[in-house]
Design a protein around this nucleic acid. Structure first.
Lengths: 369, 369
DNA sequence: ACGCTGAAGTGTTACGTATAACGTCGTAGG
DNA sequence: CCTACGACGTTATACGTAACACTTCAGCGT
């Protein structure tokens, strides 16, 4: 059966020397991982096209059920793995998404990655992850190859320059932690940080706090701006409430320094609550309070944001806003997959909830209520 | 000289003004990222093969310097990006390494990733990262595609079942945190945890501690075994020294529980130092000590391991062993790249150093010295 | 008997790159 | 004057897959 067509096939195209005809398939036993769809076809007694149809699940009405079974059996038998490069070359699609975050050592972004990877895997997609371009240096553009290596991009707005480099790419782009009104992205996925901050404000107000200082991360990013505005909005209408803002470098040491500045001065003017943009800042604030000989939460209440592992490691444990990082990552990936598939992607806001622990207590000077 | 074989097509260009550009043969302006080496060839007036040679830096003696410059100029002009899939299909090499770690939310592994990615980027390699298979479920094998998608693998021994799936792959494999005598890997890269633990032991002994309890991570992994053995070896020969071991689930809560068990009983028999396999355990131990009404470090000293961000966030700050995660990742990647290139890869042990902070102090019962 | 339809397949092609194989044209060596 | 040879290029091909364009054949209504 085989070879019937081969004799005539090359007759015209062949100008070369009387080379010996290919005696051995040379394919099956060649390399370890080198079994191709043609090998499967040979084993199942069908054409390579049929293998592609069957394994691509597009065989209904094109291949008989019997042969389809034979193909699947042969594929399993030979442990056939489709060659990703060939498939990509043919279809133009890599089943891969690019995730761009500022740093994985930030636990929040590690969680985002985990959620995104899980959502991607459910659709047989992979995730590749580019570290901060700062870490790599400007000499090499890590995004040069993105167009050909990836079907779409999820990017945190905190990786600013990377995002700029990506804009021109023409790839579907989902933005994280970014202004929903931002153009250029097919969708935006945010944790509802504004609502989270409102819950913090309500919690502290109910505990009688009126002199509040906001330890604000000194990063020009939409999330932090939104947190600050939400806090201000929640306090502006409350009679007797006073909000101050203290910028802080985003680290434990930065929180310590900022809190020390915030707590300086006479006791009567001292804030009774420190609202921090991040759990790291809150951990620093805890230290500052203790170094002044004061106690959390009896003298000063402290709140965090994000609910990292840190929040329950410090003492007292932090009242903080839990941001579901995994959900954010998963929602971002879902939106991206929709966009890649041509369906409209929709922006999402995932809820954030205040988790009350032991770093907050009634304000020491609260008379009424 | 140019176009000798296709004069008919370009007839218009003979008299045309320099402005009369070829109106894009459907390729250049077609899709966003769709400029191929053939487009560059056309623009530079050479064959596609010449483009490949020049850009692959294999043109010496095959292409004139003038044409090579023209090719490079055209490539830059058109913003040509080689198609990774086509290149892979042709050469069989993806310039990509797979990193397998148990969880990125573990700060140590996030650091490993950062180091590996940096080292890879220096050689124009990318890193793809597979999350723990547990998170994905057994239905889908995330490693099925590895053979065709990746040139080599770096795996932490803590991702046990993943490693088993990879063994059969025939891909170069570098093991992290694994027994150096382990077969099957082309190289092993470890932090010198044994030496780190010896430094902990020496530090505590010099402070006069003799009753020591080891909070041991309840994970069957080479690193933790090595830590435990190193500690035991360092104490065995010291007269009067007593080592107990308390298994602990690897989390803050696990450390808390284990430390409470360790500290139960009469004060005279209580350990004066708790040596923890990990900073999370140490954070939990800190809490346990405080809940018993004791103080760190005056009543009980506590040491950690890894030097995570947590170590300086808690109070008191942890005396701990700093493991250079980034260096481990970079060394692993370097070894893997050597192996992929056919050069022999060498195993490495990167030094670990004790960082003394404020969670350790002289033993309360130390009479002499 | 005729054309039509749908099932069941196969042959062929194109994706973009790297490279082997093949030419051409001067020029140096005999 | 012939031959080798090196510089300079080009053509053709293969990598493995998916999909298009056909072909064959049976069933079926008219």
């Amino acid at each position: 059966m085989r070879g019937a067509h081969e004799d005539g096939r090359h007759a015209a195209a062949r100008t070369g020397p009387p080379e010996a005809r290919e005696p051995a398939p040379r394919s099956a036993a060649g390399r370890g991982g080198g079994v191709t769809s043609r090998d499967v076809a040979r084993a199942a007694g069908v054409s390579q096209a049929a293998v592609s149809l069957v394994l691509g699940d597009k065989w209904r009405g094109r291949v008989s059920a019997a042969k389809a079974d034979a193909v699947r059996a042969a594929a399993r038998e030979l442990d056939y793995r489709p060659n990703a490069a060939a498939r990509t070359l043919r279809t133009g699609g890599t089943r891969t998404a690019l995730l761009v975050v500022p740093a994985l050592t930030n636990e929040f972004f590690a969680g985002v990655h985990a959620g995104a990877a899980r959502a991607a895997a459910a659709h047989d997609f992979g995730v590749v992850l580019y570290p901060s371009p700062e870490g790599i240096g400007p000499a090499r553009d890590p995004f040069a190859a993105a167009h050909t290596a990836v079907d779409g991009v999820i990017a945190s707005s905190m990786a600013t320059d990377a995002v700029r480099a990506l804009r021109a790419g023409g790839l579907p782009l989902v933005m994280l932690d970014s202004d929903p009104a931002d153009a250029g992205a097919v969708a935006t996925v945010n944790a509802d940080v504004a609502d989270g901050m409102r819950q913090v404000a309500r919690h502290l107000l109910e505990l009688g706090h009126r002199r509040i200082t906001h330890l604000a991360a000194a990063i020009d990013s939409w999330t932090f701006t939104a947190r600050g505005r939400a806090l201000a909005d929640a306090l502006i209408a409350v009679p007797g409430a006073r909000l101050r803002t203290e910028p802080a470098e985003l680290s434990v040491a930065g929180g310590l320094a900022a809190a020390q500045r915030a707590l300086a001065g006479p006791a009567a003017a001292r804030p009774t609550a420190l609202v921090c943009d991040d759990d790291l800042l809150a951990a620093g604030a805890l230290k500052a309070v203790r170094r002044l000989g004061l106690r959390v939460p009896y003298d000063v209440s402290v709140t965090g944001f994000d609910d990292l592992a840190l929040a329950t490691a410090v003492e007292p444990e932090l009242t903080t806003v839990r941001l579901p990082a995994g959900t954010v990552g998963a929602a971002g990936m879902t939106a991206l997959l929709d966009a890649v598939a041509g369906r409209g992607a929709e922006s999402t806001t995932v809820p954030a909830r205040l988790t009350v622990r032991t770093s907050t207590a009634p304000a020491p000077d609260a008379q009424r209520r």
